[in-house]
């Protein structure tokens, strides 16, 4: 049956081509979940930074309880072990990722940035309830830690 053989062959080639295209344009489930987790983690930072940041920028009145809670959240977030986030093949070569290849090339430097953030947020959590001035002073190193890591390890938007 030459026709049937040909059909089978075409189906097989189309399937191969489609799989290849799929592999190029899509991530494995592990990669996608790691990227989702990274982005969610960053969103949680941003949410809690917003609570204290509004007070630091004098946009809302200081509230010791809100400040303490948000600062404790930031410290807890910074203490999370991120080791599983940095799956191979999820750097800027992937659509939607702003994680620079330097993260993988210099994992020790990258981890040092995480330690810096953990230290800054822990110190911040200790003073965030002690009044507006104390909170403002503790907030500075947190922001500098964000910038320091983003300077070296995060790519700009496309």
């Amino acid at each position: 049956m030459p026709i049937k053989g040909l059909t089978l062959l075409s189906v097989a080639s189309v399937f191969t081509l489609v799989s290849a295209a799929f592999a190029a344009g899509h991530l494995t489930q592990d990669q996608q979940r790691a990227m989702d987790a990274r982005n969610a983690h960053m969103t949680l930072y941003s949410f809690n930074l917003g609570k204290v940041g509004a007070m630091v920028q004098d946009r809302v009145p200081y509230d010791a309880d809100v400040a303490s809670a948000a600062a404790a959240n930031l410290a807890a977030l910074a203490a999370i072990d991120e080791a599983g986030y940095w799956v191979e093949g999820t750097d800027t070569s992937i659509e939607g990722s702003r994680a620079k290849p330097e993260i993988w090339a210099d994992m020790a430097g990258f981890e040092a940035e995480q330690v810096k953030l953990a230290t800054a947020t822990a110190a911040f959590a200790a003073v965030a309830g002690d009044g507006l001035d104390a909170m403002k002073a503790g907030f500075g190193p947190v922001g500098q830690s964000c910038s320091s890591c983003h300077e070296s390890y995060r790519a700009p938007r496309e």
Binding site: Y45, S46, Q57, G143, C146, S147, H150, E151, P156
Partner: peptide, 23 residues
């Protein structure tokens, strides 16, 4: 003005890349 002072955007993302040096 706040961004140029602290590096935080209005939604509390933070500056990256060359803008860190600018800030």
């Amino acid at each position: 003005a706040e961004y140029l002072k602290s590096g935080f955007t209005p939604d509390f993302d933070s500056a990256g890349g060359e803008m860190v040096a600018v800030i």
